[in-house]
């Protein structure tokens, strides 16, 4: 279970500050599929990163299964992130000089998995997303849709309970975007919690719950 309690985040900007999140409280029950929607600049990405243990809020607290995430030192948080959450990005953020297979292996490598396990698991996951015949391709040798599927396989490699996706369909055409959402639905059915930032209404509709952000505040 993920919970945000009175989270406020201010970015220092020039001499003043920009308030990206303003006293946000939210609860995301396990197994939920939440869509975070709102206009550009409303604080969606900031919320997702705070929720994922990547950005310490200026004030307030983030709880993972009842523990305050930001009480942990950054490196301990990183290690916890390894096992608990998976991130999907709008621009996929694949490592450009690694093959599809190696990109999927990265989280396993970070978690200290044996090389043979890394290999078998990466291949299995790439087959699952329909890229079994593209394991040796670099990201630049894959289509946009294929790149996002590699990113999906990478998210799954450590079998995380929570998947945080920041506009995962933002760069995709409607058809491939729809495929990605279907895939997320499938993962949700497996019991994983999914929080997806999007400003695509059709994608948002397929979630079980919506959080609407406006100027850093949640609109009920």
């Amino acid at each position: 279970m993920l919970r945000m309690e009175s989270v406020t985040h201010q970015f220092p900007h020039r001499r003043s500050t920009v308030r990206a999140l303003d006293n946000v409280s939210a609860e995301i029950p396990p197994g939920d599929f939440t869509a975070v929607v709102g206009p550009s600049g409303s604080g969606k990405s900031t919320l997702l990163l705070s929720l994922g243990g990547m950005l310490r809020p200026t004030s307030g607290a983030v709880y993972w299964n009842g523990d305050r995430v930001y009480d942990l030192a950054p490196n301990a948080r990183a290690r916890l992130r390894r096992k608990t959450v998976g991130f999907l990005f709008q621009t996929f953020n694949l490592v450009p000089y690694l093959t599809a297979e190696e990109n999927v292996q990265v989280p396993l490598f970070l978690a200290g998995a044996a090389v043979s396990l890394q290999r078998s698991r990466a291949r299995e996951l790439l087959s699952r997303v329909g890229l079994g015949d593209r394991i040796d391709h670099k990201p630049s040798e894959l289509s946009i849709g294929q790149q996002q599927r590699v990113a999906l396989a990478r998210v799954l490699s450590n079998d995380p309970q929570v998947i945080l996706a920041d506009e995962p369909t933002g760069n995709l055409d409607p058809k491939t975007g729809g495929e990605v959402i279907s895939f997320l639905e499938e993962l949700n059915r497996e019991g994983r919690t999914i929080v997806m930032v999007t400003h695509d209404p059709r994608a948002a509709e397929r979630a079980t719950r919506r959080l609407v952000l406006e100027e850093g505040r949640i609109r009920e």
Partner: peptide, 16 residues
């Protein structure tokens, strides 16, 4: 930068 951020999001600590 982006690659480093990605590694961190995937759980890399500063030592790595």
């Amino acid at each position: 930068r982006r690659e480093i951020g990605t590694l961190m999001a995937l759980g890399a600590d500063s030592f790595l």
